[in-house]
Design a protein around this nucleic acid. Structure first.
Lengths: 141, 141
DNA sequence: ATACACCTTACACCTACATGTAAGGTCAAG
DNA sequence: CTTGACCTTACATGTAGGTGTAAGGTGTAT
């Protein structure tokens, strides 16, 4: 597939562009996360370039802890959904994201503190002690 | 186990305090994340209350996407490690955390934007369109 | 002294998220 | 017109992070 059609990408091209394996794209299709817009005569999957953006959104959301199920739910939202439900879902997700941000910030400051002390002391650095002393509210999903 | 010894907690007590299953604690022990400080005559695991803090750190770190392996590495750091290595590890983790913060912030603003539009429009809300338009740099771990 | 909730080990099983493998079809280049 | 990189499907396997189950011991309340 070297014919630069400038609108229809094969699975390999999309995969390369987004930095995932082609097999992963087929998997995402089965899971309803991203379908090719078309097929070639031979049955090859053909994607438009929006697919790459969408895929990048999926990966970013995944990197911060959303499951594929969560992400599918977000991606499935469209003009046909009753606005109430859409709003509620988005609000729930926002709350989750904010909790994650709080956790992450906490972990970050633990690490930063540990690094500080580590730099200060000529000798070994008791990071474990630091970690053990750190506190925070519960989160379990 | 109802005897309040005020320093030695059984697995069930720790589990309850931290909001995880006792089986999970045994699993963490096998994985080297958290060991009881002692055993009773009968072989019951006995933890000091630092265990709860430690466990909370584990869960918070996990909630924001660290693997148990990552977390073990952090927790294993101690005064015996050469400071150079310790620093390097912490620095690497800090970088990861900052990348996660960036991703998370991006996802957050996508959601917030979507919610805005959703509130504005009387009718359906094209969230998918929003998501597709959002961009960001690669992250795949 | 017996019920009952808790603990022990060992091992099988589960879900999410892929990845690999086999068996075959497609297509542009040499 | 064949080579070799790509694509197809279907199915098996792998890893992380647990959960469940069986078979048995513990400890305290009644």
């Amino acid at each position: 597939m070297t014919t630069e059609n400038a609108e229809r990408l094969t699975i390999g091209e999309v995969a390369q562009a987004a930095g995932v394996a082609a097999t992963t794209l087929r998997y995402y299709e089965r899971e309803g996360l991203l379908s090719p817009t078309d097929r070639s005569r031979a049955g090859y999957r053909l994607y438009d370039d929006g697919a790459v953006e969408r895929l990048e959104f999926v990966r970013a959301a995944q990197a911060v802890g959303f499951t594929l199920d969560d992400i599918r739910a977000l991606l499935e939202l469209n003009g046909d959904s009753p606005c109430k439900e859409v709003q509620a879902l988005i609000e729930r997700r926002l709350t989750e994201v904010d909790e994650k941000l709080a956790d992450l910030t906490r972990v970050r400051s633990t690490l930063a503190d540990a690094l500080q002390r580590c730099r200060k002391s000529k000798k070994g650095c008791a990071v474990v002690a630091d970690l053990k002393r750190k506190r925070g509210k519960r989160r379990s999903k």
